[in-house]
Design a binder for these strands. Structure first.
Lengths: 113, 113
DNA sequence: AAGAAAGTGAAGCGGTTGCTTAACTAATTT
DNA sequence: AAATTAGTTAAGCAACCGCTTCACTTTCTT
């Protein structure tokens, strides 16, 4: 997956919509056609196609059309990328907290107190 | 169609904006005041405050005002929650892929072929 | 060949978002 | 006490989003 600038923007934008997250959730359980994706989604098929375009543009979902049915699958590498963005920030903060804890422990164990 | 958004909705909505992600990024390096958050952000202080409200409502950022300065910190537990949402879906898919691989290997090693 | 199924594209509409400016409060400096 | 700093709130506006309907194509099924 080529990591062009803006993919993170596209992915987080794509994940911001509850309907699209529901589609990702469905696809995490296995491939599905557009109609299958639409089925639990109280909206028109057309709306689902539009959401799908957003997901595909973000790289989170890959689709292939065979005959008249388009089959959709999630792209785990793209999911990892979003996951990593969050994880990187979280661990940076937690490392900072750890250093602070060590420093405080050091201070209170100082012999001169 | 107004449905009560849960924390996951609020968090992914909050993370969808590049400016807010930049604020989270800044806060991952340590606490900051509102003005410090605004400094690299080519927009008015007022706009930054509004972004901050979105981040705080989502639980991703905690703030505390002392005197006239409000200090902001990120909430790693909230970050983990978003991280876990993605991770859960990704690993579900990857486990599925693994099972499929095992099945295929079994089939091609079948003696009767 | 006729009809149904699966999806696509365009136009349009109302609600939401991100931003601005301006007027304001409260805390700190001078 | 006056000025400055730090932030807050409200009003308003342009752009964007999610959705609908309708017209359409392509691919199966009968």
């Amino acid at each position: 997956m080529l990591h062009q600038p803006g993919q993170i923007d596209l992915m987080f934008h794509a994940l911001a919509d509850p309907g699209r997250r529901l589609m990702v959730d469905r696809l995490s359980k296995g491939p599905a056609s557009v109609s299958q994706l639409a089925e639990p989604l109280d909206m028109s098929l057309s709306a689902v196609v539009q959401h799908l375009q957003v997901l595909e543009a973000s790289g989170l979902v890959r689709t292939e059309k065979v005959g008249r049915v388009r089959t959709c699958t999630i792209e785990p590498k793209a999911l990892s990328l979003a996951e990593k963005w969050i994880s990187d920030r979280r661990t940076l903060w937690e490392r900072r907290l750890d250093r602070l804890g060590e420093y405080l422990a050091e201070q209170t164990n100082e012999p001169g107190i």
